[in-house]
Design a protein around this nucleic acid. Structure first.
Lengths: 278, 278
DNA sequence: TAGTTTTCACCTAGGTGACAACGT
DNA sequence: ACGTTGTCACCTAGGTGAAAACTA
């Protein structure tokens, strides 16, 4: 890791400031790979209707149909090393189950893992080329939320707090050859979320009570000396709607809590019935 | 891992059959790097005098002086990618402490880690070249031993049992660039020893009650198509006398047991006094 | 008797949600 | 009220040597 500088990635971190599903016009249904990009219906319900019941079927429109959402600017001709890459989200049905309820992810000062863990299968890389894999998190909108316990629903509580430092998490095996990435499931289980603005552990900093969309980036490590010039061509971004979530310091929706307890092995101590009942 | 075949390593596995310190004439004090190879005094005491008291100072002759024992056939001109490589054993004083008592390593059917763990710092690699790092274990002699509890010493119990399958343990990060290997300590903590001849977990198979010398190999992954032809030039082997040990299924020397308990964090449960008393 | 195998209590190391305490 | 923080019991996962059981 950290063999290569962030130069070729500046394009990523800068774009992380916007809201890719809405305000950024050059993100859309892609070319090349099977692309299940879904129009911004899922978060739109949040943004527009502002009040949303748990039992709504809104998750269905976010789950996507195919193996992954490939979202690249239309006008950039991608390098052949990334253009053919496709990605399949693991534990997709579990993600969808959470998403249907409105996924919440705990953030703590020390940093908390995500559950479910973001993990993918990768196809179509050049086996001999070097790639870096990384994730970042973009706000789904500019709102702050609060949870209404009385009717189990999220409410808009105002405009978003000031944006957190836009960090990026490199998969610790980066960089590595395509053959290695494709050999087995790539897991981002080391990634941790924090609400500590002064965090110096390299964790992802998020605002509690805000909504986020995880993004997955495949970056071809260009051996050319002037590789910065090709930065835009050398990466490809994948977005899975079903992985969006609300950052919280304590779970709000009781059904999310129960699903976490039921499906996360580390929460086994809080189960009171067989895990197969789910 | 396993990106490259064993072709370039056949030379290693084949040489693992002999006893490099004695019968193999082309192993000796080396060229190139600082080389603390010590004449076969250490094991020689085992082979020759056959009976050895715990309190002898034999360990002192095995501990070596410099940063590592580099042992290569004299007549082969090494590739520049490996000729400048040097290696420093971590926890050297702990290894020496064990070696002074006569190190024992547990072997189990399921596989047991080594303690101390074999770990090294590496210098002088080409930062951009790819290397594989691996370990193997060669018999120190052709003897079988038993422990005489009455006077706390090892006795020769006969000729060695049939040799075990000569396996090799690749460091799981192999292959990787020199820059990555040199960045931090390289630890072989995943390596496990077994006495199960039918082991299919890829563990190192050893005969209990036999003496072994761990070896550390740095292999330059040659990008040339006919790289097999340069196999001999592309690797360099390091031997640290102080890491030799007797494989056992249960500790024989009570002082070894006590030192393991005192120094291995996982054995903390068996301590009855402060760990700083050592 | 000498050595091996299995089981076990006890650790390391660290990921869970519950909960009480603490802010604002 | 609402949200955050730290502590805690309870897990996962797996590395220890002790001791009993087993095998020639």
């Amino acid at each position: 890791m950290s063999v290569f500088t962030a130069t070729s990635l500046s394009i990523l971190t800068s774009s992380a400031e916007g809201y890719p599903m809405s305000s950024s016009p050059d993100w859309g249904s892609s070319v090349g790979t099977p692309c299940s990009f879904v129009q911004p219906q899922g978060y739109g319900q949040y943004g527009a209707s502002a009040l949303l019941s748990d039992s709504e079927e809104r998750g269905l429109s976010c789950s996507g149909g195919g193996s992954g959402g490939s979202c690249v600017p239309r006008d950039v001709q991608k390098n052949v090393r990334v253009s053919g890459v496709s990605v399949q989200l693991e534990m997709k049905t579990l993600w969808e189950e959470f998403n249907r309820l409105g996924t919440e992810m705990i953030v703590t000062k020390a940093g908390r893992r995500m559950f479910p863990t973001f993990q993918v299968k990768i196809f179509g890389m050049d086996p001999l080329a070097d790639y870096a894999l990384l994730m970042d998190f973009v706000p789904l909108d500019d709102k702050r939320y609060r949870y209404a316990f009385h009717n189990s629903s999220w409410l808009v509580a105002g405009k978003a707090d000031p944006a957190t430092p836009g960090r990026v998490h490199f998969h610790p095996d980066s960089p590595a050859r395509g053959a290695q990435w494709m050999r087995q499931i790539v897991s981002f289980d080391k990634l941790k979320l924090t609400n500590n603005l002064l965090d110096d552990n390299g964790h992802i900093i998020l605002n509690s009570m805000h909504r986020y969309q995880p993004r997955f980036h495949v970056v071809f490590v260009d051996p050319r000396k002037d590789s910065e010039r090709y930065a835009e061509q050398n990466f490809k971004t994948f977005i899975f709607q079903e992985t969006q979530f609300t950052a919280v310091t304590a779970y709000q929706n009781h059904r999310i809590t129960q699903l976490k307890i039921a499906s996360n092995p580390f929460a086994k101590g809080f189960r009171d019935c067989d895990p197969e009942d789910w």
